Amino acid sequence: MTLKLSRKRWNLLWKIGGTVAVLVIVACSVTIDSVTQPASVNGGGVLNVTLNATIITNSNPTANLMVAFLAPKVWNAAANAKLTFTSNISNGPQGMSPIPTTTPAPNGNGLSWQTDLMNTIGHAGNLIPEYEWVAFYSDQQYPTSDNSTYTVTVNIQVPVGESNLLFNMEYVVAESNDGLHSTVFANWPPTSYYSAFIPTTPLRVFGQGTLVDFIHPQLSVVTPSTALDNDIIALPFNAGLVNNGLTSATSVYLCATGYTSNGDSITVCQQTSKTQLQPNGTGNWQIDIWPRGFFNVPAGQTIDSLHYFFTDATGATKVGYAGGSSPFTFTFNCQ
């Protein structure tokens, strides 16, 4: 889209922990009249977000509206989310569809919208790399007129699954001509053609299993967060995050107990190559395990949950959750 933007005026109103930025098809002035997003959702429920925007245009091109949001991968939001909008230049609810990952973003040097959003906008400070950008285009392109005012209401519905998590949502809206990097007019930076905002309050999903806290630094978080005992899982250890008995350790080992479906427990707590973590940067360690093999689980049984510590080479120094004496925990689950 070729357009020249005058100064944009952003008036943001966020409610119940939700803030969403909107840049629309073509505008010299965009006002978000209201944004409503709940602070929490129960597991298995639907996150409902409503955006109300006023758009004042200063040229008359035709383009698709693009709305994107950052979400946990476990939601599979590209397949499960539903986006619609209404406006004063359309009749009734207008559909939006996921943008395929093979569709290049305009002015994105061949990158997909999803990759361009990640590289340009980032990940909203989420620390566990199990997030993704999900982008939608309006199903139709819409012509606009010079010096006209439009009102748009966007409705976003995202099933959040059963995972128990705390996550920073982020929203971006742009359009299908300029994307995130337009330099059509030298006096206006690329950021004039899109906008992004992170809600002031993280979204809490009260789901099942261990809390997956994307927000706060953790000594150890099992990834992927949804896994069964027959999957490969990673157990990292950030020894330098808080002062603990292994902060200066030169070798670190896993001491773990698996709890089986029939009520038994299997403990592996030895300082051998089987349990030794590998260095992964200064103060960071990691071990990848196949739980069934690691615990030598008998046929007909499964590992339902995991309690674990990290130890030094002697086994005498043991570090658990928050650097203390309680174990880290993980509940196996698959959505």
Rank of each mutant, 00 (worst) to 15 (best):
S145T: 12
G125R: 09
P98Q: 01
N230G: 07
G122D: 02
I303G: 04
A316C: 01
F185T: 00
M118Q: 15
D264K: 08
N126V: 02
N187T: 10
N333E: 10
D178N: 11
G293S: 14
S261Q: 10
N164E: 06
K15D: 15
G323R: 13
M169E: 08
V67N: 04
A124Q: 05
A186T: 09
N262W: 01
T120I: 12
G125P: 12
A21C: 14
V222E: 01
P298E: 00
T275L: 03
R9N: 14
P298C: 03
S248K: 13
A196H: 08
N52M: 13
N64T: 01
L180C: 06
L306F: 01
L306R: 05
T31M: 10
A135I: 07
R292E: 03
N107C: 14
V134I: 09
T260W: 09
P93S: 01
S248W: 05
S87G: 15
L165K: 08
L180A: 04
V268L: 04
V35W: 04
G300K: 03
W113N: 05
P129G: 08
M169Q: 06
D33M: 12
Y137K: 14
N155T: 13
N187Y: 09
N262E: 11
S325W: 07
S97T: 15
G179T: 06
T183H: 13
T226L: 14
I215H: 07
Q37L: 15
Y150Q: 00
T54Y: 02
Q286G: 09
P98V: 03
M169V: 14
G45E: 00
F310G: 00
L246H: 05
T103N: 04
G18C: 14
N168D: 07
T153S: 04
V297F: 00
S29D: 11
W188D: 10
G283Y: 12
N88T: 07
S59A: 00
D264F: 07
G44A: 01
S87H: 11
N238Q: 12
V154Y: 04
I25N: 00
D178V: 09
V160C: 11
P298G: 02
S195T: 11
N48S: 13
V24R: 12
A322I: 06
F85I: 11
G323E: 11
I233N: 02
G179R: 04
T144I: 01
V160H: 04
V222D: 02
T317I: 15
